[in-house]
Design a protein around this nucleic acid. Structure first.
Lengths: 135, 135
DNA sequence: AATCGGAATGTAATACCATAACATTTCCAA
DNA sequence: TTGGAAATGTTATGGTATTACATTCCGATT
């Protein structure tokens, strides 16, 4: 079980902000929420986010340019993480699927492709929002 | 087999630009390559790209903010398309995997999630680039 | 305790990506 | 031929991310 170094002040602030949030946040939203803590520039957020992603504590959602705290227990992380993103309420479900990992792994092996990062994001409407807004 | 309407002038220009390209192009790169054809503003590109995506002729690669022409024969399109994107040379392989579709479909059904768009992108290094640059 | 060096931080400027708003033109169907 | 939807042209603006450089923090070594 790999461990991550102690977090710095900025990293801690950014991670706490994401933990408190009910939905993914953009870097600039995080910046706004940390103005009172002394944050002044985007780079402070992006640098902290970069480290937190390295540590596996934060995920970037490519399809919406936003970030979420990882919900997996530390050390119990999968190679591939998939996300279901609700367009309506913004909530995100994080999940893993071994079969998906294996199938993509087979393609990669067959094509001698050396994967660095895999993005799996399903955008749509969650059960709650579909129920509330029949359509 | 569904058909798509005839393409307009701008749509044709944008699609041709993507077809000629060896790698994905950003909207602004497309704009630059169409200056001589009268393109002046990003919106001309984005509007054409939007329609081409509707018709299934162009894909957007979320993880790199770029666009590629669809390589699948028209009418033979899958629900989900996956992409292997080489960080080094930029080339993209488009593929489908029924098993992956099914597994994600099962998750979605089990959680009553109504999917609108699924993104699967593997970023890394292709066989050629790995061979040339052993590392 | 002094100091050296790498990591983290602060700040300003800039580059890149995408859309809003509104005016105008094109083109087909009635 | 004309009415209206779709496409286009143009300007302005908003959102996302990085470059470049100066400074500070902090632990390891002396």
């Amino acid at each position: 079980m790999t461990s991550h170094p102690d977090l710095t002040k900025n990293q801690t602030l950014v991670l706490k902000t994401l933990d408190k949030a009910e939905a993914p946040l953009s870097a600039y939203t995080i910046l706004d929420r940390l103005r009172d803590d002394g944050f002044r520039a985007p780079l402070q957020v992006y640098r902290a986010l970069g480290k937190l992603q390295e540590f596996g504590l934060v995920h970037r959602l490519e399809s919406i340019n936003a970030f979420v705290a990882c919900c997996q227990p530390h050390g119990h992380r999968h190679e591939m993480t998939a996300f279901a993103i609700c367009r309506t309420c913004g909530k995100v479900d994080e999940f893993s699927d071994t079969a998906v990992e294996e199938r993509l792994g087979e393609w990669v092996r067959a094509h001698r492709f050396k994967p660095a990062k895999t993005t799996i994001e399903i955008s749509g409407d969650c059960a709650d929002c579909t129920a509330h807004d029949p359509g």
